[in-house]
Amino acid sequence: MDIIKISIDTLIKGIGVLSFILILLSVHIVIKSSKEKAEAGKIKAYIQNKQDLWYQYFNDEIVLPVELIPNNDIEIKATEEIFLAYIKNISNSTIEEKIRKFSNQYLRQYYSGFLLSRKWSLRMNALYRIIDFKIDSLAPECKKLEKRTKLSPEEHFQLMIIYSMFNETDFIKEFANLSVRLSEYEYKKLLVGFKSEILEHLMHQMKELPMIYRHYFIDILGIRRELGFLPFLEKNLSHNNTEIRIRSLKAINEIGIVSNLDKYKPFLKASQWEERLMLAKILGAFPLEQVYTYLEELLQDENWWVRSQAAQTIGKSKDGKSRLKTFIATAQDQYAIDMAREVLGGEY
């Protein structure tokens, strides 16, 4: 039974040690949390005091007063908060420029310290702020960061944004033959901010891009409503890749300018339902008499989504509701009739 005795001894000791650590840590946390509380109070008070001055400065009522230059970390954090409220809510190039200048001058030191930090979270925070406040003087430091530490994908992405902001030409070269794999969200987020010329540049390189990036590229043309790319998108309608065709249809629909019906007719017999769905959407751009026969065919499609969309498109058109009523009265296809009923809503 000696083994058990020893175990009991060690166990008691172990619990004792752990309890001791527990007490120590508790004390640490208590101190820390009261410190944080005091800090939060100070930040709030600082914002209260200074926000009017900032308002006046941003609205060109006064020149930058000396008391707005932060003296310590708490004041910097408060200033940060004020800046963020402006940047996230107000678009005004003068204010942005003022924030940029101020940050480059007075906050540069603070953030460059964070960039050097070993903690991932602090580096991330610094990167976010460099982007928000456009602290371009820290761009070289960011570049160095890439060589110095092993970076997480999140940091890589933030760096890409920074490069795209501060060094466009280099960035485009890098972007065309990207080594890191970006997620859909990241890729699109970058593309959305680009100038049209850069997109055009990318369009010519389309064939060299990986297929998945080509998809994103087409999506973005739709999101940005890039009129100039309409011929390019229409050309893609006969692409042999289904996904490219579907996304091009979607983008064209987003742009909303559809002229030549003949270009879209073939999709009536498309094998993929998504293509027929997009067709049902696009047909809404034409006068109903011109396309009703096609829509009626789609209303009786084998796919639920296609039927639903066709009914909606008809319902939205002028005289569409009466057409649907006639359809309900004469048609055989119960699925299609249900769909028409839904669109008619309370009117039927």
Binding site: D52, Y55, I82, A85, N89
Partner: peptide, 11 residues
Amino acid sequence: ENDVFRKVLYR
């Protein structure tokens, strides 16, 4: 909701 922005709108 944002205190700072609300004040900005006010001013």
